Amino acid sequence: MQNATSVPQFHFIQLSEDPDQQTVLFGLFLFMYILALFGNLLIILTVSSDSHLHTPMYFFLSNLSMVDIGFISTTVPRLIVDIQTHCPVISYVGCLTQMSLFIIFACMDSMLLAVMAYDRFVAICHPLYYQIIMNPSHCGVLLLGSFILSLVELLLLYVAVLKFFNCENFFEISNFFCDPSELLKLACFDTFTKSILKYCVGALFGLLPVSGIIFSYFKIVSSIMGSSSSSGKHKTISTCGSHLSIVCLFYGTGLGVYFSSSLSHSPRSNAVASLMYTVVTPMLNPFIYSLRNKDIKTALRKILSRVF
């Protein structure tokens, strides 16, 4: 008898088992991935090339676009390969790597939305002190703090998923990627410990940034209601409209996935619902900002005039 250590593997659920739909899904996700890369890279190029956009608001927007590129690149390329090879299996190390990148980028996305809400709050409620408060060093600290909180959330989940070695050697995940919530269900912990970890992760990922966003917009709405200028109200609403659209899209799709997983017992339905915030949201974010923001559209026209 020889002692052998077996490494666990993870099997993803397939979005469709119909062979005729595999080609359609392959082309669809490849198109969505390219579109997301193009849109977010265009936002980064536009902000970096136009000096008028070198402000805290667009600094955070360009970083949000970089995070969205990483966010969608964590799941979609692997999904495209799985559709093409018909082998949705990933190793233990590969699953940990994908989960780690997913957590970092998803949490960074959430934190940056809260930071952008704070930026709008300072700009609207304290315009005279805006340049002092949102100085470059303060913006760097906010960005670094978002990254550190993402790492803290990652470490919390690592406490759970590293216990897989004490369990079985083959796991089936009810999603098309290494979803942290699915991995937490499979972890070798008792129900109470899983609940504690779930609440801690939920507080960092959802409660903290959402509370910041609600507080910021509560102050903004109070400032708008106290203003007598209709033009000022319209300018404030147009300034915050793009950010609010992205916030509603990101958290709305996230809540949709949560409720669909609670109400539906179909793993494939949960996987399809997860596509909304892992693929559709980072794909639409740059287009929401470019279509609703006058400064971005003006800068884009300048870039296109130089090229053509």
Rank of each mutant, 00 (worst) to 15 (best):
6 S>W: 06
8 P>W: 10
14 Q>H: 00
15 L>R: 02
20 D>P: 01
20 D>S: 15
21 Q>E: 14
30 L>P: 05
34 I>S: 04
35 L>T: 15
36 A>L: 10
45 L>F: 10
48 S>T: 12
49 S>H: 13
53 L>Q: 06
54 H>C: 11
55 T>Y: 10
56 P>D: 10
58 Y>C: 12
60 F>T: 12
60 F>V: 14
66 M>W: 09
70 G>E: 09
71 F>Y: 15
71 F>C: 09
74 T>D: 10
74 T>N: 14
82 D>W: 05
89 V>A: 04
91 S>Y: 08
93 V>N: 14
96 L>D: 07
96 L>F: 14
99 M>R: 07
99 M>D: 11
99 M>C: 15
103 I>S: 06
106 A>T: 13
108 M>S: 14
117 A>Y: 10
121 F>H: 05
124 I>W: 01
126 H>D: 13
127 P>C: 13
130 Y>P: 01
130 Y>T: 14
136 P>C: 08
149 L>Y: 06
152 V>K: 05
154 L>N: 09
154 L>K: 02
155 L>N: 05
157 L>G: 03
158 Y>H: 05
162 L>R: 07
163 K>V: 11
163 K>Q: 15
164 F>K: 01
171 F>S: 04
173 I>A: 01
174 S>A: 09
177 F>L: 08
182 E>W: 03
194 K>I: 13
197 L>Q: 04
200 C>I: 07
206 G>S: 00
208 L>R: 05
211 S>Y: 08
216 S>P: 06
218 F>S: 00
220 I>G: 08
220 I>F: 01
222 S>L: 05
222 S>A: 13
222 S>I: 07
228 S>D: 11
230 S>R: 12
231 S>I: 12
234 H>A: 15
235 K>P: 01
236 T>Q: 14
237 I>Y: 07
238 S>M: 14
240 C>N: 13
241 G>S: 15
243 H>G: 11
246 I>Y: 09
247 V>S: 09
249 L>Q: 05
257 V>C: 01
263 L>H: 04
263 L>G: 02
264 S>H: 09
267 P>A: 08
271 A>H: 02
272 V>P: 04
279 V>C: 13
287 F>P: 11
293 N>L: 09
294 K>G: 07
294 K>Y: 11
305 S>E: 12
